[in-house]
Amino acid sequence: MALVDIYVPKKSPLHGVDPRVKIISAVLLTVVCFFITDLVVLLSLLLYMQILVWSTGVNLKTYSSSFWLVARFSIILMIVWPFFDQVGQPILLDLWIYKPTLPAVLRALAIAMRIFIIASGWLILLLTTRHGQLVRGFVKLGLPYDFGISLSIALRYLPNFLGTIDQIKEAQASRGLESSRGNFVKRARNMIPVLIPTFAIAFRAIEGLSEALHSRGYGANPARTYYRDINMTVYDSIAVALIVSVAALAVVSKVLGIADF
């Protein structure tokens, strides 16, 4: 399952792009999205992002799990939105405090589309970048190396963690633990025999890891070198320049009222 373990081991154009470019693009996309209000523009951008996602070679299963994850969130958002935004005409429904108006619904739709667009940007990053390169990208962009290592370790352990929980459930079930029956309080209490071993295992792993890091010289030389490093090519530099200028242009022209999208 694990959201973090979705790297697609293929060679698409986006795979070859430097992680920093992808990170910067995802960030800028997130920012620029909020400046776009035209639904047609949002839709086009949404479709364009899906094309990019499919170009990575992602398999249907991964794509649909991510899609539905975002979709559930967006649908809830769209339903809840009119509680808080009741501006405009015409009023579509009149149910006591729930009075969705057409403009409000369209605004909700815009937000939903933005969420998909932003999610697509970050999804592309995770689909085309191995964990090590991803962390290296953040570190080269300014994240302190120690944080980077913590991130690497978290990314590596999270899928294990989740898998271990299943194994623990099995082990406790064979001692008679009924984890899926009973009322809410009972079920919550039955999580304890599953959660405690999970944390105990995590702590032991962390202890072992810290000894291993020490033994492998972590921190021995503040000026560490890199074996398989990430390097910006000419294309990467051009891509970044292009993306940054387009984003800047879009924001400025929207803010100054020069263009309306």
């Binding site: 492998r216 010289g217 921190g219 030389n221 000026a223 560490r224 070198t225 890199y226 398989r228």
Partner: peptide, 9 residues
């Protein structure tokens, strides 16, 4: 490579 990297080689 992690260990020799840490030594700055």
């Amino acid at each position: 490579a992690f260990a020799p990297e840490n030594l700055g080689l």
